[in-house]
Design a protein around this nucleic acid. Structure first.
Length: 343
DNA sequence: GAGTTTGAAACT
DNA sequence: CAGTTTCAAACTC
């Protein structure tokens, strides 16, 4: 039924709406440019976008919407309402969803190196350095495919999962770690590993450095925010920064950021995340975690091929923003900023 | 590329 | 809260 309608009622609240994405209006309704995920081919620029047909991109089914970003050109969605033009609808809908589930837009994968929200106990058992917020409910995939949100996020299953026959390579529900991440790396590890395995194993050092910086700022905050969906490659290509370049858009970071600083952050106790988004100068640092992070550090990724895959949510939640080339780290954006109950 | 499978999200 | 339906991604052919 009408999602839009329902949402509208709340719309007035949207007045606070932050800057969503910068945008103009991109009708990408053209079904022609169907571009699935980054599959194998165009990992370069088209990392991933949604392909919604019925949800109008106003439900969590839509990855863009779920991630808190507007749909942009590469999307192949139809009847998309997840655009700046329909800002109020989007915000209203989000509110509605959040009212139902406050954590709906929170990062699904929570890095719990040290601070585990609630599943603290198992955190010690699970090897993975992160955990899925709600846990999966897989029955047939054995948590070995991307159907599994835990697996997809590169994290192990935890007791919160209700999966059956869990074989999650990143860590099973029962705590038995399959151990060898090596296993992973054969497969798509290439993709994810960059975020996961690699991180855990090789780049520990770098990670430390980085994390110190980032984490220090946000101890508990999921980094998922660091979505670097920048399509900067245009810099030289001169591709018109179609509004869609959400990201650095100056005012908008790509997420529907409502920067109400005083908001009660559910996950983030500290309300002081200013949007000092640390933007990594792309000129200098193309990709931090990417693997090729910095040659100088020497800790580079082990992957022979420097294929940069853009994991949907490598380690931080499904981020539509793939690390295309450079990354913009906005650590400050509240994960589910958008609409916090203003009361 | 079309069709199938899968599990989250949404709905009842 | 549990069962069912809807949905879009992941996957297979």
């Amino acid at each position: 039924m009408d999602v839009a309608e329902n949402g509208v009622q709340l719309a007035h609240d949207a007045s606070q709406e932050p800057a969503f994405l910068a945008n103009e209006e991109f009708n990408q309704n053209s079904p022609k440019k169907k571009r699935r995920r980054f599959e194998h081919a165009g990992e370069t620029e088209s990392c991933k976008r949604c392909n919604c047909k019925k949800s109008k991109c106003l439900k969590l089914y839509c990855e863009c919407f779920a991630a808190g970003v507007y749909c942009i050109e590469p999307c192949s969605c139809q009847e998309c309402f997840n655009k700046p033009i329909h800002e109020d609808t989007v915000l209203a809908t989000r509110k509605q969803i959040e009212s139902r589930n406050p954590l709906a837009f929170a990062p699904k994968v929570i890095r719990s190196s040290d601070s585990v929200p609630e599943l603290g106990e198992e955190s010690s058992k699970t090897p993975a350095s992160a955990r899925h917020k709600r846990g999966c409910n897989c029955k047939k995939s054995s948590c070995l495919k991307k159907y599994c949100e835990c697996y997809q996020g590169g994290v192990g299953c935890s007791i919160s999962c209700r999966c059956e026959g869990c074989k999650n390579a990143y860590g099973r529900k029962d705590g038995s770690f399959i151990g060898t991440e090596a296993e992973l790396d054969e497969e798509e590890a290439e993709a994810c590993e960059k975020s996961v395995a690699e991180k855990h194993q090789q780049k520990i050092e770098i990670q430390k450095n980085e994390e110190q910086r980032l984490d220090s700022a946000l101890p508990t905050t999921p980094l998922r925010l660091s979505r670097q969906m920048v399509s900067l490659p245009f810099s030289s290509k001169n591709k018109p920064p179609r509004s869609s370049v959400f990201s650095i858009g100056g005012s908008s970071s790509g997420l529907y950021t409502s920067q109400k600083l005083g908001k009660p952050n559910i996950l983030q106790p500290e309300s002081k995340f200013e949007r000092h988004s640390q933007i990594v100068p792309e000129d200098e640092m193309p990709e931090i975690l990417q693997g090729d992070g910095s040659p100088s550090t020497g800790v580079k990724t082990a992957s022979p091929n420097s294929k940069r895959v853009c994991p949907p949510n490598s380690d931080f939640g499904p981020s539509p923003g793939r690390r295309t080339g450079r990354k913009l780290i906005l650590q400050s954006i509240p994960s589910f900023p958008s609409l916090t109950p203003q009361h």
